[in-house]
Design a binder for these strands. Structure first.
Lengths: 235, 235
DNA sequence: ATCAAGTCTGAAACTTGTTCTAGGTTAGCG
DNA sequence: CGCTAACCTAGAACAAGTTTCAGACTTGAT
């Protein structure tokens, strides 16, 4: 990455001024995300790009996702690629968002069956972890992009973060709205999740260690659940 | 970063074959690190480089640390810079190691004075956090480099990790050797620490939120300390 | 003093992310 | 049908990390 994140000219993903006429190509289904009303062909291009990105990432990780190659693989001009995704990090974060959505729907179909919330969350994360182990290079590309992202990618990273939070909250199976303490615990779990993945991906931690750490951090859920001993055990 | 981390030719930081003659320049004090027996002038160069790196990083963060500039600021040829630090990430991780060592000695002088281990650790981390807030750009450069580092930087990142672990263990003030559970808790705290810093640096979390999360994760220390309720509170 | 080995320098070259430009294309609209 | 705005393409150009190379320098050994 060079200087990353300048102000960008309006692209197909920008809102219109509402003056009446819209994008040149015919506008269709704005189902899903609210911001980008995309054309059929634009949607197709976007998908091709994300597919190429994931493909290349699966092969060789972060470094293997080269913008020129992504452009060529998805039959799109380099300039167009940059119109859709203003930087490599944007692209990879979007790729991650895509994959996360898959995972979320998959997980909803077969929810974890642990006895308490902590178990269910750690089971869920371990399931996700196993999925990532099947495509370690892809995981590398996505996670590195995610943690390397600077302020210009904040909105996208935030979306990913919300998705992850949703997955964890789902697994917790709460009866009521989460308390602030629970939300903090979830954030901590997310932190641990990302950082543990990094250490695993860079070969500094074993799979077993990641498992242990996930289980360790998940204990925070019991600790912060309403009804658990408040404050320190010694108090 | 481009392709990062090729096999590198022998540099001043490499061990010798023990054949008898050593580095060209006079060899002096190998106090400190065991691996690199550096000359006086080499040590001076190394320091100049690290200083320039920190200087530039303080000014504009990760992007502002440009290898050509570092080389010029430290009056060293670009090739030499690369001989000392095989990549920008190596350089920044080494910079972090340097800063951490300062912090460690500083902390040893005025150890935290909390009642229990969890308090002391979170106080220590918050102190470090405040130090980082004084140089947010430097923090940005170091932390981004740390989490972006790939396998080729593992040894260096590991050193930083060990330093951080040492700081936390120091703050805990253990009577005995840490148990495996405690070590896992410390790793989780470290994960949270890095990842929370990232979210703060990229503007996605407030200082207050980082504080809360650190305090939250530090509760794990009580939970895993010998004598605390083992397993889940509900069991 | 000379030699060999390892270092340092300066500069050019190469790679890949990112930006820019000129021209061709598409689609709504009068 | 022809206009216009927005889009897309091909390709050059630029920026910064990384590599390479020839030559000068340093030092210990002969």
């Amino acid at each position: 990455m060079l200087c990353s994140a300048r102000a960008r000219l309006p692209g197909p993903l920008d809102r219109h001024h509402g003056t009446g006429h819209m994008t040149a190509e015919v506008e269709l289904k704005d189902s899903g995300a609210a911001s980008p009303p995309l054309t059929e062909r634009q949607e197709a291009r976007r998908r091709r790009i994300l597919h190429a990105s994931a493909q290349l990432a699966s092969k060789g990780g972060f470094d293997a996702v080269q913008m020129r190659e992504v452009a060529e693989s998805s039959s799109v001009a380099l300039g167009t690629l940059y119109r859709y995704f203003p930087s490599k990090v944007h692209l990879l974060v979007a790729t991650m968002q895509d994959q996360l959505q898959h995972m979320h729907t998959t997980l909803r179909k077969r929810p974890p069956a642990g006895d308490d919330a902590a178990e269910r969350v750690s089971e869920t994360l371990m399931r996700a972890f196993r999925a990532l182990q099947r495509e370690p290079h892809l995981a590398d590309a996505m996670v590195r992009a995610l943690t390397f992202a600077d302020r210009s990618v904040s909105p996208e990273v935030d979306t990913v973060s919300r998705l992850t939070t949703a997955i964890i909250l789902d697994a917790m199976g709460l009866d009521a709205e989460p308390t602030p303490q629970q939300l903090s615990a979830v954030r901590v779990i997310e932190h641990t999740w990302h950082s543990a993945l990094i250490t695993w991906l860079s070969g500094r931690a074993s799979i077993a260690q990641v498992k242990i750490d996930i289980e360790t951090v998940c204990k925070l859920i019991d600790l912060t659940s309403p009804g658990a001993a408040p404050g320190h055990p010694g108090t």
